[in-house]
Design a protein around this nucleic acid. Structure first.
Length: 645
RNA sequence: GCUCGCAUAGCUCAGGUGGUAGAGCACUUCAUUGGUAAUGAAGAGGUCCCCGGUUCGACUCCGGGUGUGAGCACCA
């Protein structure tokens, strides 16, 4: 007797070993039809999987996240099958599930075209109609290699050879198509209801740019047509929030051919920039940073000493003048050490915190540039803390507190934390790396927040914590960072006099909260879809007259608002009020003040918000109070607690 | 940097088998002074990204650049 426990706690008995699909059938034909996979003691399996012991079993359908995942993975196989039907010469490589979809990489003599994509999609639909059974089988490594060799699938052979161990490998066959795969997969190709191929692009074999380029086809798959539609709508919405598009529409900045990757900031965009910078100045002052400023051009020899030239020469802009080579600074740290080095430092001076809104230039690879998110000229809210080893812990903790308070003010409460550890190419002794990595781990664990370990991704001089926000397309944008560096200060001759009057090398913490103003503003634009919170809005209030009779009154209002420190202007054009409201609403100005004869007479303003909400008529003072409160709230949501700094 | 695509008015975009181009919005002028998302009329506006080649003739075809988009690689 076999006892199966279902997720609701109910138990079913079977007289002999039983498959997942049979269990589903015993519950109901509807469930059997919907079954995509099973979960046995938490492990996902095919519906054909046989259970031969007392255990917990769940039937996985499209309503399960796991079910969708299986569906997407199987959809990648479906696509590969279609590709090989249409293009028998195409070789398959890998086809994993990703967020919202899947991709599959093919080796083919030419690139796939959009026309190819629709042909592939049609063939996929045909295969769905054929409702082919998906069958799992197991082969020994040697047999598997022989099989793929016979099929001319060189990449699969290479994949198998690179799989460690010598266990047997599982395969999935549907019709004429067979693929190496761990599974599980849907029971038949008839299970797909909603999928779409979205794009084709190049991708390197094994993610290595030294290798040949494959053709990657991206697709998305969902449990229902409705879900697919919602997903496509979500993509469209995200596109409308694209900061590049909004930057143009709202007149914030532009790029042009003569300065690739270097933004030209317009008055409105620069206002946002300046407000953020002013805010950061205050925050850093309150946290005992001292602001400095260092040169834009520095002799190349300094970058050689620091080790940057050896690693980043290709990405540095340089200038020759009077037979001397300068680099346009790609980063600020070596310069900050020069400031530290002026005058003899005592242990009593530590921790010494230097901050700079440092303009940097890097020759980023052309294909990596992306609006404001990745640029060649940018300004970091950079800071370096010179301290002793004992002080690392508390400095990192203080920095994290500062960072979360700032993000909270900007309306970001979800932050992704990652710890990147020693890379292959690095400087310094491993014992020091041990200390540096451990201190960051301790700091992360002290927060009780989840964090991800990314081995090998640290800077060449030290490990780092990265703080990332998501942009509207779901792309993760790294903003803040803190890095522990035991090496650069020593390379550049920094030292302090310790208690025992010995010379000691300080530890340097590199840190940035926003990362760069450029990227952070890009993320903000997308977060708010261009409708910046009042404190950041380039224009906070626009005064609109209805006829020329109110012009003088409007100008007085504008002046009063400006005197109170608000960013206000008036639109006195001879246009209808509906026209002006439309225009300024599209420009996402938070408050529109409508003034007609009635308002002039009573000394009031009629207040309309950019979302269309009518706050009614109020006195000028009441409006000023309202706006003040809105500005003081920063980007924090209405009911969230106040700032902690 | 790599693969593929794209580049036409200030903006968003049409367009043509190779005979130098159009719309809407914006802009300018005139009329209109209108109470919460587009008043009407007229006018002006283009080296069709750049450099070569083919051709009687190139915005269109070919080659090479540059910029840009998606993805990959890179990211101090």
């Amino acid at each position: 007797m076999l006892q199966i426990t279902l997720p609701d706690g109910s138990k079913r008995e079977f007289s002999s070993p039983v498959s997942i699909i049979e269990i589903a059938e015993s519950i109901g034909p509807g469930l059997a039809k919907a079954a995509l996979a099973g979960r046995v003691n938490g492990t996902l399996v095919d519906t054909s999987h046989t259970v031969d012991a007392d255990t917990e079993v769940a039937i996985v359908t499209e309503r399960d996240d796991d079910g969708i995942e299986v569906l997407r993975h199987s959809c990648a196989h479906l696509m590969a099958q279609a590709v090989q039907r249409l293009f028998p010469k195409a070789q398959v490589t890998i086809g994993p599930v990703i967020e919202d979809g899947f991709f599959y990489d093919f080796a083919f003599e030419r690139a796939f075209t959009p026309e190819d994509l629709s042909a592939i999609e049609s063939t996929m639909n045909a295969i769905v109609k054929e409702d082919l059974q998906v069958e799992r089988s197991v082969l020994a490594r040697d047999a598997a290699i022989a099989m793929f060799k016979g099929m001319g699938e060189d990449y699969k052979v290479e994949i198998i050879k690179s799989i460690p161990g010598d266990e047997d490998l599982s395969f999935y066959r549907q019709g004429e198509f067979i693929d190496l795969c761990r599974g599980p997969h849907v029971p038949s190709t008839g299970k797909f209801k909603a999928f779409k191929l979205t794009s084709v692009a190049g991708a390197y074999w094994r993610g290595d740019s030294a290798n040949e380029m494959l053709q990657r086809i991206h697709g998305t798959a969902w449990g229902s047509k409705q879900d697919l539609k919602l997903y496509l709508q979500r993509l469209e919405e995200a596109e409308k929030r694209d900061h590049r598009k909004l930057g143009k529409q709202l007149g914030l900045f532009h790029f042009q051919e003569e300065a690739p990757g270097m933004p030209f900031w317009h008055p409105k965009g620069w206002t946002i920039y300046q407000v953020i910078q002013g805010y950061m100045k205050q925050v850093q002052q309150a946290s005992n940073y001292q602001e400095i400023n260092t040169p834009q051009l520095v002799d190349y020899s300094l970058w050689e000493k620091s080790g940057h030239a050896a690693k980043f020469a290709e990405e540095m802009f340089s200038v020759e003048s009077d037979n001397r080579m300068y680099a346009i600074k790609p980063m600020n740290c070596p310069c900050h050490i020069q400031v530290f080095n002026q005058g003899l430092k005592s242990y009593r001076d530590l921790p010494l915190r230097l901050a700079e809104f440092g303009a940097c230039h890097r020759y980023e690879p052309s294909g990596s540039m992306h609006g404001l998110m990745r640029v060649r000229s940018f300004v970091q809210d950079d800071g370096h803390i010179f301290c002793t080893e004992d002080q690392i812990q508390s400095e990192v903790a203080d920095f994290m507190k500062l960072l979360f308070a700032v993000y909270h003010d900007f309306g970001f409460d979800e932050v992704m934390l990652r710890l990147s550890t020693r890379p292959e190419k690095r400087v310094g002794a491993d014992e020091l790396w041990d200390v540096a990595e451990q201190s960051l781990k301790d700091a992360l664990n002290a927060t009780a927040l989840p964090w991800e370990l990314v081995p090998g991704e640290g800077a060449f001089y030290g490990p780092k914590i990265e703080y990332s926000l998501k942009d509207c397309m779901g792309r993760v944008q790294q903003c803040g960072t803190i890095q522990v560096d035991f090496f650069t200060p020593g390379r550049l001759g920094a030292y302090y006099i310790a208690e025992d009057s010995s010379r000691q090398t300080p530890v340097m913490l590199h840190r940035a909260v926003l990362g760069s103003f450029e990227r952070f503003i890009g993320v903000l634009i997308e977060q708010y879809a261009g409708a910046m919170p009042a404190w950041l809005s380039p224009q906070q209030a626009m005064i609109l007259n209805i006829t020329d009779r109110q012009s003088e009154y409007c100008q007085k209002l504008e002046e009063s608002l400006k005197n109170k420190g608000f960013r206000a202007s008036s639109d006195l054009r001879n246009e209808k009020i509906g026209f002006k409201i439309r225009e300024h609403t599209l420009q996402k100005i938070p408050y529109l003040l409508v003034v007609g004869d009635k308002e002039v007479e009573s000394g009031t303003v009629a207040v309309r918000k950019r979302g269309g909400e009518d706050l009614g008529t109020m006195t000028f003072d009441d409006f000023c109070n309202h706006l003040s409160q809105d500005v003081a709230r920063f980007g924090r949501s209405e009911n969230s607690p106040g700032a902690s700094h």
